[in-house]
């Protein structure tokens, strides 16, 4: 029980600073789950990102995966509920009185001003993850192929990930 409360509190805190879309969760969760708490290995973390991209839900489904690893199904449920609690409560509050919100403009400009830091953080996450997990020429080849496909075609990331998994399976990547 104590473990679940700790998990709830942890995901609640992450939910409160969940600015700038789903990708900011990658540096946040990587730092907390892999570096600090060591609930996941780097490999498991990357695999979790891959799995969360296979669902229609937001990248935040990564919280479900991490919660599952930490405490099984109850952990998955607690992680999911608490990471989405702050944004849902905020959205309900805004919906009920959005015409009256005088400070809305201030919030929007603050948010826009903060986004460059999110971009920097996401880029740093790619750097940090790549530095430790890309080790062979084959990895870099896949990285470049992935970059080209994801940047210049409209193929859904889900299919790119499934395609890469199929390649790995067929050619027995070790």
């Amino acid at each position: 029980m104590g473990g679940l409360v700790k998990l709830a509190w942890l995901f609640l805190k992450i939910g409160v600073i969940f600015f700038g879309g789903g990708y900011v969760l990658i540096p946040l969760l990587h730092r907390i789950m892999v570096d600090q708490l060591q609930w996941l290995t780097l490999k498991e973390f990357l695999d979790g990102v891959a799995l969360s991209q296979l669902t229609p839900g937001p990248l935040a489904m990564l919280a479900t995966f991490t919660g599952y690893k930490a405490a099984g199904f109850p952990g998955a449920l607690v992680g999911t509920v608490f990471i989405f609690l702050p944004c849902t409560v905020l959205m309900l509050a805004i919906s009920s009185r959005y015409e009256k919100m005088r400070n809305m403009e201030l919030i929007r400009t603050t948010l826009d001003g903060l986004l460059p830091a999110v971009v920097g953080l996401v880029a740093a996450a790619a750097w940090n993850l790549g530095k430790t997990s890309l080790s062979s020429g084959r990895d870099f080849l896949l990285l470049i192929a992935g970059l080209l496909i994801l940047q210049f075609t409209k193929v859904s990331p889900m299919f790119v990930i499934l395609g890469a998994a199929a390649l790995g399976l067929v050619f027995h990547f070790s």
């Binding site: 990357l46 990285l143 199929a166």
Partner: peptide, 24 residues
């Protein structure tokens, strides 16, 4: 399963880079 997921890891990093470029 390990082989399949080893294939996806570099692609996940590509996905994060593309997200950073798009947001940037």
């Amino acid at each position: 399963l390990q082989s399949a997921l080893n294939g996806t890891n570099p692609v996940i990093i590509a996905l994060i880079i593309v997200a950073a470029v798009g947001m940037g």
